[in-house]
Write a protein that binds this DNA or RNA. Structure first.
Lengths: 349, 349
DNA sequence: TTGTATGCGTTATCAA
DNA sequence: TTGATAACGCATACAA
């Protein structure tokens, strides 16, 4: 059996298929996009040709004429730990259900990198963007507005912010957790926080902890806060610093589970019993929180739910934008709850 | 102050800039791509217009004519845990250094999903693909070959496979770890493995463990293997099954750190002391391995190094493909090493 | 129901 | 050094 043609030197195009099926390119296009508009017999002929050539439409060409890429961009601070993984996975799942593709990049918590990545994603034709937290240059929001690319903020709910958001109230969530700590009788408390600059989630969590102090008639400045990066090892170092400089502390509130896990490990190294001597709490309730020993009392964030809701919200925004319609109000506050595990107990004595 | 024009209804294009600067589109294009080919004075005028309009080139149009997207696709089995996170982060970093963008999707360890995502990524014009492990339908490799999209396999090195790979030798790595276990005197050993079907890494690790048995004159079938999905909770269940059905076991080798962490937690629940009663080992040396208690003896995989090397390798393949040149041999075996921590000790008695 | 012709925003070839 | 203009692969308005 002889091949009719030499194998194609590059991917088959619409007109290759048209030729193979003996129809026009328009008909092939219709078969693919609105099959009901073409009669059964020709459709079969066309589809057979599509199969035979293993034709796949060229995305760039399609995006150019449709002025939509069905691509959503997401920029997360880090892929290195699980903080964003689960939520992002749910986000992606919901997106692909709707025929969208997700483009992810990570900024390593560096604002200037995030700005560059936003431009890249917009240039790549992203129909919409998912961003983490509200803190960024006003100019970025201007840029997005000018380019008519809707952006949704997740992991942080703030109804009055420049961008709509699907997230949770970091401040009140942490306040609730801190209240638990205070209820148990702790008074000498320290906090290991992520860097507050450029990170509204970290800032809100500190504020929330102080809120609880105030609500209990305590001086909010009595809460000593050590700032560091969200890194396991950094959590360990911060814990060491705290117990060295403030040996009478009975509870250490951590900005997230990763920091708390680091604190736990350092405590073990120093021979400090958790929670007997010092209680430790986390935030996020990632898998790690249940695995470490003792398991972490933490704030449970329904990441999957948040990711799913964020996807629906962003798609709604994109749909509105593509019709030049006003952006719908999609903001949503996802509720969190405190999960009590072994790392938190009443203070000694 | 009055605006000269109404704000643009959509993103500015080359010809908007050309008009603004009073030159042709060709000149604007040259300013952006080969600035040395245009005289200083006009270049300044053009660049000013670019700034003023906040012009960003349309990616789809550029990709269409260049027949290159400078996009690399990666399909990983899961984003939910940290197994692939660090390596992928390094992969992305190296890619963006070279001007490439990474498109990530996850297949949830489902082959048919992976196949669909490969098609999607190819349709999106990915210049090259990063895949995890070698196990997949031959048809997929045919498809990729036909579409002239180079693919690189990572996390598993196999010199004779259909695709080049930058990864490590799962089999010998696990054999080495198992040898440590045997050296300590363990003989009643069980293994918790990921599902072997469609997962050459999981299969190789089991084979490696059996290799060590053989090397020590033991019956490889004496190693009882429980297969499950790479999930923390599943690791716990598998451990429970093992100690229930085989109470005299003294060591449990786990297919990765996630399974091992699950085993550890289940042991705690059952009141089994690790490593005094039963030793447990992991694989990967993700952060989790050092955080759990006792810390895991495991196989350290230099994920960052692997990600970086994979990026360079894939870029080389893409460059070759774009010049219709023969694919260079980029395969590379990254070496691993056993890390001894507290979870492994001699058997009791 | 199907085909023709046009345009999307770039880059590249060729003249000027 | 710069400017027309022809592709690139696809979708669609319009014609047949």
């Amino acid at each position: 059996m002889v091949k009719k043609h030499a194998p194609p030197r590059s991917a088959p195009t619409l007109s290759d298929v048209a030729q193979e099926a003996g129809v026009s390119t328009a008909t092939v296009s219709r078969c693919l996009n609105s099959p009901e508009r073409v009669v059964e017999s020709t459709r079969q002929r066309v589809m057979a040709a599509v199969e035979r050539l293993e034709y796949t439409p060229n995305f760039a060409a399609r995006a150019m004429v449709a002025k939509r890429s069905y691509t959503i961009g997401a920029i997360i601070p880090t892929m290195e730990n699980a903080i964003f993984a689960r939520g992002l996975q749910a986000f992606q799942d919901a997106l692909s259900d709707q025929g969208y593709t997700l483009l992810v990049s990570s900024s390593a918590y560096r604002p200037e990198l995030e700005a560059a990545q936003i431009r890249t994603l917009v240039a790549r034709g992203a129909d919409g963007l998912l961003l983490i937290g509200h803190d960024r240059d006003e100019g970025i929001y201007d840029y997005l507005a000018q380019h008519r690319v809707p952006a949704l903020v997740a992991w942080s709910y703030a109804p009055d912010a420049r961008s709509p958001s699907v997230g949770f109230d970091n401040r009140s969530a942490m306040a609730e957790l801190a209240q638990h700590v205070l209820d148990l009788g702790h008074r000498r408390i320290a906090m290991i926080s992520g860097f507050a600059a450029g990170n509204d989630r970290a800032r809100s969590r500190v504020l929330g902890a102080r809120d609880a102090f105030i609500a209990n008639g305590l001086d909010p400045e009595a809460l000593r806060v050590v700032e560091t990066s969200y890194d396991f090892e950094k959590g360990a170092r911060a814990f060491e610093e705290i117990v060295t400089q403030q040996p009478d502390v009975t509870a250490v509130i951590c900005g997230n589970d990763v920091l708390a896990a680091g604190a736990l490990q350092e405590a073990r190294r120093l021979g400090i019993a958790i929670p007997e001597q010092i209680s430790v709490t986390g935030f996020d309730d990632i898998e790690l929180a249940a695995v470490v020993s003792p398991a972490l009392t933490t704030v449970h964030v329904p990441h999957r739910e948040m990711g799913r809701q964020a996807a629906h919200a962003l798609i709604a925004m994109v749909a509105a934008a593509s019709q030049q319609a006003a952006l719908p109000d999609v903001s949503q506050c996802i509720s969190t709850k405190v999960v009590s595990r072994a790392s938190l107990s009443p203070p000694p004595g």
